[in-house]
Structures are given as C-alpha cells and as structure tokens.
Design a protein around this nucleic acid. Structure first.
Lengths: 129, 129
DNA sequence: TCCTTAGATTGACATTGGTCGATGCAGTGT
DNA sequence: ACACTGCATCGACCAATGTCAATCTAAGGA
C-alpha cells in the first residue's frame, strides 16, 4: 500500500459542460449534463477513500478527534482497539501517508492529530459527484 | 464481497460526553472530549466506504450522476471505462448492494441511477468524525 | 424457430490488504 | 553501561478484492 499523498482533491468535479457530444455515436448513449470525473482524479480520490475504508482506521480517526486536545498517543489506541501494536502502527502509517493524520514524536511517545480539513475535503468531493 | 446494505448511517457520532473517565487508568491516556465511534458503527461505515474506494466505481457514480436524466445504461459505461463488461457488471452490483445505485431493467437494457442522498449520508458522517 | 444482442453469473487467477510474532531502535531511568 | 519502555519495521500468512474469459439468461427481430 503506497498512498502517495493523494490530497489535495480540488477541481475534481469539473462542471465543464461536455458541450459537443461528438457523434453521440453508437447506440444507447443519452446526453451528458456535465463531464464525468477524470480517470486520474478517480484514482487519486480512490486512494484517499481506501485509506478510510477500514473500521480500525475509522475508529482511530474518531478516537483522535474525540480527544480533548485533538491528539492521541499510540497507547491510547492500543487501549481501545483490540488489535496488536504493530497492526495499529500499520494503520497509523496508512493514515499519515494518505494525509489524514499528523505524527509528532515527543520523547518516547508518538502523538497523532487530525490534519484539519482533510476529511472535509473528501466529503466535499463525494457530495459533488 | 457482501456489502449487506450498510446504510443508513445516522447516529454514528454520538456526542455523548464520556463524562466519567473512570480511573483515567494506566499511563498516557488524556481525557476524551466526547465518545469515539462505536465499533459496530465503524464496521458499517467501513463497508459503505469500501464500496466507494475504487476508481472504476467512482467513475461509474460520476458518469451516472453526470447524465442529463441521472440514468445510465451499462453500454454507456462500457464506452467510457476501459474494463470488460463482466467487470463493470461486478462493480455495478457492489454499488447497488451498498445502497448507492438503483437498477431499473427496461426491455433488454439495465438503467442505473443514484440513490438520492446516499453519498451525502456518507459525507456527513465523515465530517462528523 | 433461430439468431443476435444486453447484461448477469461463474470460475479461475493474480494482486492487494489486514493481521500478528519477532525484531530493531530510540529515549528514559537506574 | 544496562535494562526497560514505546513504537516502528520486517517477514510471513491468509482473506478479500479486481480482473477477465467463458458461459448463461432473457428480450427482440428475422
């Protein structure tokens, strides 16, 4: 899993009118009111969404977000998730690489916090589909 | 892949204050401003999001949504996606079972349309995390 | 009736992804 | 220096997923 920093996700829903439906060629195709999402954008968006498509990772985001100081260390997560520490570390890495979490190492502990607006960005693209 | 009708997704972000942080037990745990998402809700949400976490399926949703009449038949999709017809049929099935698409068979053709509000529902839960 | 077409289903395959045990590696305390 | 602790990385394993060729079904048209 690479998750090469899929965000930012702006400019995905083009709204550019397809205008010339050249040929309206073959058989069944009816007219398009607007252009569909571009393949590269679909790839980028799917990479972001894939990082969210796991119950453990959703719980991690929620636990981090629910913390009073918007920060949680790994031990907070191992307490609440019934998963091994390496597995949790793996999920954290996925979320960091996808741009949803920030990692701050202080002393022995690693603290994770939400990247502001990252979830809203994905949500915004979804409603625009 | 089963996707047992994950929606509706209401009531996921509880907002119920955790109140009594009993014992604030072990080591590093700082206080929670609110309760995190419940494990079952995380599972249901992850099932929905998984259905969206594929570039082909995102393009399908976008193509359907971009159609003037909000409907597309399979041939519209095979024209625009560089995937075999069985693969597209598979993705359509996933989206229908996840509650994002409706299938209407008329004569030889199958027409697919968006389930109104289904994407907004997922987006709403995301911003509430 | 037979042929053709639209689309769903099946089966097989390769790839990806989630999980854990074992290990490595910094910080911290003694 | 030594042991310990918190967390990341590695390697392996198995389950889930995306893909296609082949096949099946149903609807139309000759």
């Amino acid at each position: 899993m690479t998750f090469t920093r899929a965000l930012p996700l702006a400019d995905i829903s083009p709204g550019a009118p397809a205008g010339t439906d050249q040929a309206d060629a073959v058989a069944c195709s009816s007219s398009m009111a607007r252009a569909a999402i571009a393949p590269e954008h679909a790839d980028a968006l799917a990479r972001s969404i894939k990082a969210l498509a796991d119950p453990a990772r959703l719980r991690i985001l929620s636990i981090v977000s629910a913390h009073a100081d918007q920060e949680a260390c790994v031990c907070d997560l191992t307490d609440q998730l019934t998963l091994s520490q390496p597995t949790i570390s793996h999920h954290l890495k996925v979320l960091v690489e996808a741009g949803f979490l920030l990692r701050a190492k202080r002393g022995t502990w690693s603290y994770y916090s939400l990247v502001p607006g990252s979830l809203d960005s994905v949500a915004g693209v979804l409603v625009a589909i």
